[in-house]
Amino acid sequence: MEPKQGGGSEEPFLRHVEKDVLIPQIMREKSKELCSDKVEAFTKCCEETGFLMVVKCQKENKALKACLTAYYKDPTFYEECKEEYLKEREEYRRTGIPTKQRQQKLPTSM
């Protein structure tokens, strides 16, 4: 599979795992943050109702799914997450340090 060309610049090559696993993982994390009010409402409902959550939390579950699905299907959101992934990938290739380790190793003030 060759990189696509568009507008005179080459689009970065993405492996299957990057397109189908890593970028969607970023999308899930970011969409949960963006839908945090619905995540919180669903979580609270589940905690309050226990085993009956399947029946009693349908409204909250439906709202949460609708919010998340809207982001998952948004091509602009996908492109934003892809760009974030590409920046992280480029930084990793440059430094050899994964993003999460770089964030943990930030110097503390003395």
Rank of each mutant, 00 (worst) to 15 (best):
F51E: 15
D74Q: 09
C67L: 05
K44I: 11
R94K: 15
R89K: 15
A63M: 10
K30Y: 00
C81W: 01
E40C: 00
E33G: 09
F13M: 07
Y78C: 01
K73E: 07
E60S: 04
L64G: 03
K32M: 14
A70N: 15
E33A: 10
L52M: 11
E11R: 08
Y72L: 03
K44Y: 08
Y85M: 01
V39T: 04
L34C: 01
M53V: 08
S109E: 14
R94N: 14
P75N: 06
F13Y: 13
E29R: 14
E2S: 12
L64I: 10
Y71N: 05
E79H: 12
I26E: 02
P3Y: 09
Q104S: 10
E48H: 08
T76M: 01
P98A: 07
G8W: 04
K82A: 09
E18G: 01
K56C: 00
C67S: 06
E40Q: 08
M110S: 07
K56E: 14
C57W: 02
Y71R: 14
R28C: 06
F13D: 03
K65L: 15
F13E: 07
R15N: 06
P3G: 14
L106V: 09
K56V: 02
K87S: 13
G6R: 09
E80R: 13
Y71V: 07
E48I: 03
K30S: 04
S109H: 09
H16W: 03
G7F: 08
E29N: 12
Y85I: 00
K19I: 05
V39E: 05
H16A: 06
A70K: 15
L106Q: 14
S9Y: 09
D37Y: 00
G96P: 04
V21G: 01
G96L: 07
H16G: 00
C46V: 15
K62T: 15
P98Y: 06
D37P: 00
E84L: 12
K38I: 01
V54C: 04
T43S: 11
T49F: 05
P12T: 13
K87G: 06
R102K: 14
K65H: 13
C67M: 08
M110Y: 04
A70T: 15
Y72G: 05
P24R: 03
Q101P: 00
K82T: 08
E83F: 00
P12G: 11
E40S: 08
C46A: 15
A66K: 15
C45H: 04
K38P: 06
C45P: 04
V55E: 12
E90W: 01
Q103T: 06
R102C: 06
F51H: 12
K19S: 07
S36V: 00
Q58S: 12
